[in-house]
Amino acid sequence: MTYKLILNGKTLKGETTTEAVDAATAEKVFKQYANDNGVDGEWTYDDATKAFTVTE
C-alpha cells in the first residue's frame, strides 16, 4: 500500500511516498526520513487518505 508524507517544516516543505505493509511501518520510515532531514514537529495521520503530516 502507498502512504504519503506531507512535510510542513520550517526549512523543508514537500511530499514523499513510500510503499509499506501497514501504517505503523510507513510511520517508522517517514519519521526516520523527517529526522534525517532535520524536521521535528507535530505528527498527524489521516487513514482515509493514507497521509501523514508533520508540521514544525
Rank of each mutant, 00 (worst) to 15 (best):
I6M: 05
T17F: 14
E42L: 13
L12G: 06
N37L: 15
D36L: 12
N8Q: 09
L7H: 03
D36A: 12
A34R: 01
D40H: 14
T18L: 13
Y33I: 07
V21M: 13
E42N: 09
E42I: 14
T25N: 07
G14N: 08
A26I: 02
Q32M: 09
E15Y: 13
T49E: 10
W43P: 00
N35W: 15
D46K: 03
K10W: 12
T2I: 14
T44E: 10
G38E: 06
F30K: 01
D40Y: 15
D47G: 08
A20E: 04
E42A: 10
K13V: 10
M1L: 13
K31H: 08
V21A: 13
G38Y: 06
T18M: 11
G14S: 12
Q32V: 08
N8T: 08
V54H: 01
V39L: 11
T18S: 05
M1A: 12
T49F: 07
Y45G: 00
W43N: 00
W43H: 00
F30S: 00
K10D: 06
A51S: 15
L12I: 13
G41H: 01
E19V: 15
D47L: 07
V21E: 12
I6R: 05
Y3P: 02
M1C: 13
D40I: 14
A48T: 12
A24Q: 11
T11N: 13
E15H: 09
G14Q: 11
G9V: 10
A34P: 01
T44D: 08
T2Q: 10
K50Y: 09
N35P: 01
A23K: 14
K28D: 05
D36W: 07
E42Q: 11
K13G: 05
F52R: 00
L5S: 01
E15G: 06
K13P: 05
T11A: 09
K50T: 03
A48S: 12
K4C: 06
N35L: 15
A24N: 08
E42H: 12
T44F: 10
E27L: 15
N8E: 07
A24Y: 10
V39C: 04
K28A: 12
G41M: 03
G14K: 12
E56G: 06
T44R: 07
L5V: 03
Y3E: 02
K4A: 05
K28I: 11
M1G: 11
Y3L: 02
W43T: 01
A24C: 12
E56M: 08
T16V: 15
G9K: 04
T16R: 13
A51T: 15
A20P: 01
T55Y: 08
K10A: 12
A34Q: 01
A24I: 10
D22T: 05
Y45F: 06
V21C: 11
K31M: 08
L12Y: 15
T11D: 10
T2P: 05
Q32S: 08
G9N: 04
D47A: 14
T53A: 05
N35E: 14
D22V: 03
V54R: 01
E56S: 08
L12N: 07
E15L: 11
K10R: 13
A23Y: 13
L7V: 12
A51F: 06
G14V: 14
V29E: 07
T11W: 14
T16M: 15
E27P: 00
L5H: 01
V39I: 15
V29R: 09
K28C: 09
L5M: 05
T44K: 08
Y33D: 00
E19P: 05
K50V: 03
F52A: 00
T2S: 07
E19D: 10
T11H: 14
T18N: 04
V39Q: 03
A34S: 05
L5G: 02
N8Y: 11
E56R: 04
G38P: 02
E19R: 14
T11R: 10
A26C: 01
Y45T: 00
L5A: 02
L7Q: 02
N37Q: 13
A48C: 08
V54A: 03
N37M: 15
A34C: 15
D36N: 08
E27F: 15
K50S: 05
F52V: 00
L7N: 01
D22F: 03
K13W: 10
Y3Q: 02
E42Y: 13
V21G: 09
N37W: 14
Y33F: 12
D40Q: 14
K10P: 11
W43F: 04
A20H: 03
T17S: 11
T18D: 02
V29W: 14
A26K: 00
T49D: 07
E42P: 04
L7G: 02
W43S: 00
K31S: 04
F52K: 00
E42T: 13
E42G: 05
T2K: 11
E15V: 14
V54E: 00
A51P: 00
N8H: 10
Q32N: 07
T49G: 06
G38A: 06
Y33Q: 03
V29L: 11
D22C: 05
K31A: 05
Y3N: 02
T18W: 08
T17N: 06
A20C: 07
K4T: 14
A20G: 04
G41K: 01
A26Q: 00
E27H: 11
G38S: 06
E56F: 11
A24K: 11
T49N: 12
D47F: 10
E15K: 06
V39A: 04
E27W: 15
N8S: 08
T55D: 06
T53W: 06
T18E: 04
N37E: 06
G9S: 09
D36E: 13
E19C: 14
T16L: 15
Y3T: 02
V21W: 12
T49H: 10
T25Y: 07
E56P: 07
V21P: 15
A24D: 10
T55E: 06
V39M: 08
G38L: 06
E42M: 12
G38Q: 07
A48K: 12
A24W: 10
K50G: 05
N35M: 15
T17M: 09
V21T: 12
F30I: 00
M1T: 14
D46N: 09
D40R: 14
T49Q: 11
E56I: 11
L7C: 08
W43E: 00
Y3S: 02
L12P: 04
T44G: 06
T16D: 03
Q32I: 10
A51M: 13
N37K: 14
A23N: 05
F30N: 00
T11Y: 14
A20D: 03
D47M: 08
A24V: 10
Y45Q: 01
K31P: 00
K31T: 05
T25H: 12
G14C: 15
Y3M: 02
A34E: 00
D22W: 03
G41N: 02
A26F: 01
K13R: 12
L12C: 14
G9L: 15
E27M: 14
A20S: 06
T49P: 03
V21F: 12
E19M: 14
A48E: 13
N37R: 15
T53M: 09
E19N: 13
N35S: 14
T16Q: 09
E42D: 12
L7F: 11
A20Y: 03
A24G: 08
Y3H: 03
K4L: 10
T17L: 08
D47P: 15
T25F: 07
E15P: 04
T55L: 06
K13A: 07
T11K: 11
N8W: 12
L5Q: 01
D40G: 08
A51E: 13
V39P: 01
G9D: 03
K4E: 03
G41E: 01
K50A: 05
E15M: 12
D46I: 04
Q32D: 07
V54G: 00
D22E: 04
V39K: 02
K50C: 06
N8D: 09
K13S: 09
T11P: 04
L7R: 02
F52E: 00
V29D: 04
G14T: 13
Y33K: 02
G14A: 12
Y45W: 04
D22Y: 04
E15I: 13
N35D: 10
T44L: 07
K13M: 08
A20N: 03
T49Y: 07
M1V: 14
D36S: 10
D47I: 09
K10S: 10
